[in-house]
Design a protein around this nucleic acid. Structure first.
Lengths: 253, 253
DNA sequence: TCAATTAAACATACGACGTACGCTAATGCC
DNA sequence: GGCATTAGCGTACGTCGTATGTTTAATTGA
């Protein structure tokens, strides 16, 4: 249930009053974020969060109606990390979009579980602030409304896709380090596939180097955090080039 | 466990032999795909798949070592849908990439659960074919290896991000139709937020129209399948423009 | 000040889930 | 026809989200 049931999104309801609550939503989402970062999104259970808060499982349900609500809190905390501090938002539209994109990607990469979880979470106040900030960034383009939304959508798609890609790569790299024998099994499978002759371009890409002797480059370029970030930067500028020329945006250059 | 345990990826192991098995992997993944499409990825359980196959739960474990393996089969079936038939792949790099992008997006949009599931699934034969096909598409660009991979990565990020975006939108739209009262609660929350005055650009975007009287446009432009597809096409061409000019690719135009 | 009220906290329990374990019975090969 | 192999399955364990009902503590009205 993506919309959270009958009472509206959790942010439209006040935090519980009367008897002073032991926890704030920030504390709860912080604990949940921490668990997800340490042990993966799958480790975030109502019991676990409650335990780490020092409470009984069912006590959580006074702060959160369902687990979806908890996930919504987590996602909104993450969107908070994606916000560019208001004073740091450049005036030029291109610089502003770049700043927002960098920060958004950084937040998503920091919490690789987010993209899966975010998929059907309700949008919260920080998501709204993110949208507002994006609109502010493109306010100076002189474009009409539809074109502005197009521009934002294109850049957003690239940023989220890039974060997805980076998250996968890093997760794969981590899994490979944790379980080296599985990685050689995967490589063996890949080599066997190559030997069918159906993959000439991949063969050419590897250029005769046996990945078993160079396990650091599983299929192509290095996959460390820095390379992926540089790749993201190159792609982002290319995307911005493309939309700028398509939409005929005046630029200060 | 993204790497699937000790025995290597499922594709490196033969289907069970000796006594003739009742099911093929294709049947199994087809049933699982069908369940996911009808009732969501969360409805795909070992019990459910087994039941719909007409078998007992534990019998599935003779075809699949863990549920992760089942998900891997599902993802690979999906990547099969994303393949462009070999005879239909255009010679021009830009047309070829466009064809691959369209087909990939279509497959991902058809199965909105895929992006979440795909995140940590092992790559299979069809993913490999997809990669091979992408390499074939950019073979005629004259770029060196690193630039080719950059190009592919940028387009792929945009395609996956766009599919993520589209999937979210459609899912939200479906949820809204299934549960209209929740939607008005969300709108009420949004209006209340607007009234804080912290969102001048969003207010300007709505242009004074109260979404409660025009609930079809929750926040901005229409979100139907066609509009999203057109938006994707515009964005894709913009992205291709950008990489083409950045990478200085000769084009037949 | 002291009862009445409200809300926070919790224990128990239910039906789902993935899957470890061990048994039964059907099949292919000699 | 005998036998090894293995598909198929029943049971059970520990996890999950959460419905339900009860206890405990703080706030409020008189």
């Amino acid at each position: 249930m993506a919309t959270g049931g009958n009472g509206g999104p959790i942010w439209s309801r006040p935090e519980p009053g009367a008897r002073r609550p032991r926890f704030t939503r920030q504390q709860i989402s912080a604990v949940a974020l921490d668990i997800a970062d340490r042990d993966g999104f799958g480790a975030v259970s109502m019991r676990r969060v409650a335990t780490e808060l020092g409470a009984a499982t069912m006590s959580l349900y006074h702060y959160v109606r369902t687990k979806d609500d908890l996930v919504a809190l987590m996602d909104d905390a993450l969107m908070g990390e994606a916000l560019v501090p208001a004073t740091e938002l450049p005036a030029d539209w291109r610089d502003a979009l770049t700043a927002i994109a960098r920060r958004t990607r950084a937040a998503l990469v920091r919490h690789p579980w987010a993209l899966a979880a975010l998929q059907d979470a309700q949008f919260g106040p920080n998501a709204m602030r993110h949208f507002e900030q994006s609109l502010a960034a493109v306010a100076g383009t002189g474009l009409d409304t539809a074109a502005r939304l197009d521009l934002l959508s294109i850049v957003d798609c690239y940023v989220f896709g890039s974060a997805l890609h980076t998250g996968e790569s890093l997760q794969r790299a981590a899994a490979a380090q944790a379980n080296p024998e599985a990685v050689s099994a995967v490589i063996a499978f890949g080599m066997a596939q190559l030997q069918t002759g159906q993959f000439p371009h991949i063969e050419a890409l590897l250029g005769g180097t046996d990945p078993r002797t160079h396990p650091d480059q599983a299929a192509g370029p290095p996959m460390d955090q820095d390379s992926l970030e540089q790749q993201f930067e190159r792609g982002l500028q290319a995307v911005l080039d493309g939309v700028a020329s398509r939409l005929d945006i005046p630029h200060r250059l």
